[in-house]
């Protein structure tokens, strides 16, 4: 088995940041805030966050903030809860949450809660349990969870629970590992994991491991490195991660590296991107791969960053 090509991945992430001319870079401009979170968290896990000019990042982030308090995916783009969480997470990485007008950001998020407890992604009303997670995670990091009706938020998430133990986007929606992460994460942060049948969900999740060692997101689908995060973090939060083979999954992730040019792809020999590079490295961190910082399975930030937020003084 190969090793993690740490130096290559660092170079890859730094190069993506600078690349602006090819089609994919232009097409992805709208979610640059997510990209910043994926890339910078990866660098931190690899111990290389100091390669970044903090002030430059922080000032760009603040330029993406809308007068409503929410953040857009890039300068000039509309605010959305998806990018608001990434902005807050990146600021947390750099210990720069103090630059925020916390009241304003938290008001924006709390304003997106609907009567039934669910959350809209923005003013246009798309509802999804992803947004429930984001709202809860973000408000918790900013110590303002009391701004929303947590009980209703939890009961909406519980109403999306399926008969296989997993969760979907909205009530009745099919279980999907990404969605399960969001719901388990939101329940973890609100101390509500007792709503989960850990054995039922744990078995469904551990059956996501296919023969090759990788994890898929739903039954009878192909494995993909990103599920190393969605499935693993969920299994860890419910204490069932020992039900899969860690060795085989480590091998699968390492096999998806581009050892020449850096970066990690969805499956071996596919094209790499920052998203999969992050999920690969974060997955390896959850698998306790040597040399990586530990990542928190619920807040999706390095454990030291989370501990500082909640136990610092």
């Amino acid at each position: 088995m190969g090793e993690l090509a740490t130096e290559k991945h660092v170079q890859y992430i730094l190069s993506v940041e600078k690349r602006k001319d090819d089609f994919i870079s232009v097409a992805m401009e709208y979610l640059r805030m997510n990209g910043a979170y994926w890339g910078l968290t990866t660098l931190d896990l690899l111990g290389k966050l100091d390669a970044i000019d903090v002030d430059e990042v922080v000032s760009w982030i603040m330029k993406c903030q809308h007068e409503s308090g929410g953040f857009g995916g890039n300068i000039g783009h509309d605010p959305h809860i998806l990018y608001t969480l990434s902005a807050v997470q990146v600021l947390a990485l750099f210990d720069k949450l103090n630059v925020l007008d916390v009241e304003k950001v938290t008001n924006y998020i709390a304003g997106l809660q609907n009567e039934d407890g669910s959350f809209s992604g923005d003013e246009w009303g798309e509802v999804d349990t992803r947004f429930s997670y984001i709202a809860i995670c973000c408000l918790s990091i900013l110590h303002h969870l009391n701004k929303i009706n947590v009980e209703k938020a939890v009961s909406y998430i519980v109403s999306c629970k399926n008969l296989d133990g997993g969760f979907g986007c909205t009530p009745g929606g099919e279980s999907h590992a990404g969605q399960i992460f969001c719901c388990v994460g939101a329940l973890a942060i609100t101390g509500s994991l007792h709503h989960i049948d850990k054995d039922l969900l744990g078995w469904w999740l551990c059956e996501r491991q296919v023969k090759a060692g990788g994890l898929n997101g739903r039954p009878e689908k192909l494995p993909d490195v990103c599920y190393s995060w969605w499935v693993l973090s969920s299994l860890i939060m419910i204490d069932r991660v020992h039900w899969i083979s860690k060795e085989k999954l480590v091998k699968f992730i390492l096999d998806c590296q581009d050892t020449e040019n850096g970066g990690i792809s969805d499956r071996p020999d596919d094209a790499v991107d920052v998203y999969h590079t992050y999920f690969g490295v974060a997955g390896l961190s959850l698998l306790e791969y040597p040399g990586l910082k530990a990542i928190d399975p619920a807040y999706a930030l390095p454990v030291d960053v989370v501990n500082k937020i909640f136990f610092g003084r």
Partner: peptide, 18 residues
């Protein structure tokens, strides 16, 4: 001995606001 704590969120603490 472990960097990842699999019961971190099953135990009542400020991390989960209990």
């Amino acid at each position: 001995s472990h960097s990842i704590d699999t019961t971190r969120y099953l135990c009542s603490s400020p991390l989960c606001h209990t």
